[in-house]
Simulated scan of single mutants.
Amino acid sequence: MTNAERTALMIALPKGRLADQTLDLFAAAGLPLPAADNGRKLILSSAAGDVHYVMAKPTDVPTFVEYGAADLGVCGLDTLRESRRHVYEPLLLPFGYCRLALATPADRPDTPLRYASQPRVATKYPNLTADFFRARGVNAEIITLNGSVELAPLVGLADLIVDLVETGSTLKANGLVETRTIMQIQAVLIANRAAYHLKRAAMEQVLSRLRAHLAQKERQRA
């Protein structure tokens, strides 16, 4: 990393739809955007070089921010809570809405959370899932998957699943029904704790522009 990159404001974005939505929001708020000719680089610079965007895997964004590789970052609340990373959360963002939910096969939707033996639960969120069952006194066996969690009950791998739900169409297509909402999800802007003080002026400029833009949008909807 060059000296210019160290002094510039570093913002970690999750590759994919959240990055696109974040950059749309930043553009609407009048914040610097990556120059158009960055090609396939993973660190994208603004035209003035005062802001650099680190394009990261979504689950890595909280790690980049906690360890100071990025000053700010954008991720989903699910990713942040699952990561257990210690960062500031100065602003919720108005996109990325969904929910983390418990689902079960549709032919046994009333299966209680308490079982005579351990329920097997497949999920991409082992920490949040363990917290949910532990709080209810259920000794669940958590099976961590990285792919299509909906497959687990269909092939006998798990009794239940915990996964993100937006419309519920994927659950329905695979014979599953949502039985509990564990948490509501949306995007959140996060900040490195040390950088929040060391680069306070630059961060506050970003935050104030975003807050002003979001407040204006809220007034227009009222």
Rank of each mutant, 00 (worst) to 15 (best):
Y97W: 13
D159P: 01
A122V: 11
L100E: 06
V121S: 09
T123K: 08
E141R: 11
D110V: 02
R134I: 03
T104W: 02
A116T: 10
P112S: 03
Q118H: 13
V165E: 08
S148A: 14
A130Q: 14
I143L: 14
A158L: 09
N146E: 13
L102V: 13
R120C: 03
V138C: 05
L151V: 13
Y115A: 12
G96N: 02
P109I: 04
G147P: 02
L154I: 13
D107W: 04
T123Q: 08
L102Y: 05
K124D: 02
I143H: 07
L160C: 01
Y88V: 09
E89M: 13
S169F: 11
K124I: 05
V162C: 03
I142D: 03
V149E: 00
Q118L: 05
P94H: 06
A130I: 00
R134Y: 03
V121P: 07
K124V: 02
D107M: 03
E89G: 00
E166I: 10
L91H: 08
F132C: 01
Y115V: 00
Y97V: 03
T167R: 12
C98P: 00
L102M: 12
S148P: 00
L91N: 06
P90Q: 11
V87Q: 08
L128Q: 10
G168F: 11
P94R: 06
P105L: 13
P94C: 07
D107G: 00
T144I: 04
A101L: 07
L154P: 06
A130H: 11
A106R: 10
A103G: 07
A158G: 08
L93V: 04
D131L: 07
P126Q: 07
S148H: 13
D110L: 13
F133L: 02
L91S: 08
G156I: 10
L128H: 03
R120I: 13
L164Q: 12
T129F: 01
L92Y: 11
V155C: 09
R134P: 00
I143G: 05
D159Q: 10
P90V: 09
V165R: 01
Y125L: 01
D107Q: 04
P105G: 09
S117M: 12
L93G: 07
L151S: 09
D110I: 01
L145A: 12
V162T: 05
L91I: 06
N146Q: 12
P94Q: 02
Y115Q: 14
L128Y: 04
P109Y: 06
L92M: 12
L157V: 14
L151E: 12
A103L: 08
G156S: 09
L164K: 08
N127Q: 14
K124R: 15
E166D: 13
N146P: 00
E141K: 12
R134T: 13
L145G: 07
E166Y: 08
R134G: 00
T104N: 03
I142A: 04
T123F: 03
I161D: 04
L151Y: 12
V149M: 06
R120M: 04
A103D: 09
L157H: 11
P126F: 05
R134H: 11
L160E: 05
